[in-house]
Computed example of a mutant assay.
Amino acid sequence: MTPFDHIYDQPDPRAYFRALGPLEYQAPHHGQGIFRRALTARGQQGRAAEPETVLDICCSYGINAALLNHEVTLDELYAHYTSPQATALTTAELIEWDRNYYAARRRHDAARVIGLDAATNAISYARAVGLLAEGFAENLETLPPSPSLLRAVQHTRLITITGGSTFLSPRTFQPLLACAHEPVWVAALVLRTSSYTSIAACLASYGLVTEKATAHTFPQRRFTDADEQQYAVHAVTAGGEDPYGKETDGYFHASLHLSRPPEDVMAFPLADLMASA
């Protein structure tokens, strides 16, 4: 896969949107409706009337939090961050502009979102503009979580991932699930070029059943070149999936994997949560 490391830890997200816009990167858009419906279902389980806590892994600049908690679309964010007005601002000016932008669009049912990402600058930006209640620049693949992270995620009800699952393993999930005060739901959009098997097995050890949505996949982004497309087609085929009409048409595709306690699988069918996907 083409590396985009240079855009993930800038002082603000303008380079991110400039680079990924032409490639039609859209994973957070697909997650927006699914995550909102998942939170609605969790809220029907008789908990206190307080904001639900969501942990967004590989949160980058807080884009999933922006889409979850605000009346805004991903296309509008592309337009916002690539506009002449945004281009002319310093990072400090952009942060102030974004504070007002998101405050004016805040939903009444906003969740408390905690962000986890190895990119220090991205986390700092997301916190500065008010997208994250708390943010942690940590890589649990290489180091154990800090005590402050473990304290912050104790009341997590939903874990979300729209990018980065390819680079994750049980090492990231084990300490987070071990410290949770109650079973969590884990909703992940996973590229079809990679396997989710080891993570699903880890989640199963904490009592979570993983369902994969097989009737629908989600375009993630266009390929950067023919080599990347060839890699994807071969990887998808090797994994037992059919790339025809998906990767063969020029896009990475992702599948939804949703992990929950067995009783929640029965109470909230996956098809209902996918209803508008």
Results as ranks from 00 to 15, higher is better:
N64E: 10
D5L: 14
Y244A: 13
W97V: 10
I199D: 02
Y78D: 11
T160C: 01
A65L: 11
A15H: 11
A137I: 01
Y196L: 06
S169K: 09
Y206H: 05
P261Q: 12
R105H: 10
G21A: 07
R42I: 14
V129S: 06
H155F: 07
A204H: 10
E71K: 14
L132C: 08
Y61G: 02
T237I: 05
L74P: 12
E96F: 05
L177T: 00
P28W: 10
L77Y: 01
A254I: 08
V265N: 03
A79F: 13
V184E: 00
S148D: 11
Q154S: 04
A19Y: 09
R192L: 04
E263Y: 14
L94H: 05
F173D: 00
H257K: 06
H6F: 15
H257I: 03
H234V: 12
Q32L: 10
P175F: 05
T248C: 12
A215M: 11
L140S: 05
L55K: 00
Y16T: 04
P51T: 13
I34S: 02
G135Q: 02
R18Q: 15
V233L: 06
R36Q: 03
S146C: 05
T90I: 13
T210G: 03
D5A: 15
D109T: 12
Q230V: 09
I95V: 12
T214S: 12
S194I: 10
V236N: 03
T90L: 09
E247K: 06
Y251Q: 12
H253E: 07
R171I: 08
L68T: 04
L132H: 05
I63Q: 05
D9L: 04
G62M: 06
A215H: 14
A19N: 09
R221E: 07
Y206F: 11
Y196R: 04
H216G: 06
Y8G: 01
R260V: 03
I123D: 01
H6S: 15
S255L: 10
T193Q: 03
F35N: 02
I123A: 00
C58H: 12
V129F: 03
S146T: 10
C59H: 04
G115P: 01
Y206N: 00
T40E: 12
V209I: 13
V72W: 07
L39P: 00
V209D: 11
L23G: 02
I34H: 03
R99C: 04
G31K: 08
G21F: 02
G21Q: 07
S124A: 15
W185A: 01
L77A: 07
S169R: 09
T40W: 11
T237C: 08
L258I: 01
P51S: 12
R18H: 15
C179F: 04
A275G: 09
A213I: 08
W185R: 00
A267K: 09
A48K: 15
L158F: 03
D98T: 05
G31T: 09
Q154T: 02
I199M: 08
M274Q: 11
Q44S: 14
D109P: 03
L39R: 08
E141M: 08
R171T: 12
R192K: 07
A213S: 08
D56C: 01
L191M: 09
G43W: 11
L77F: 02
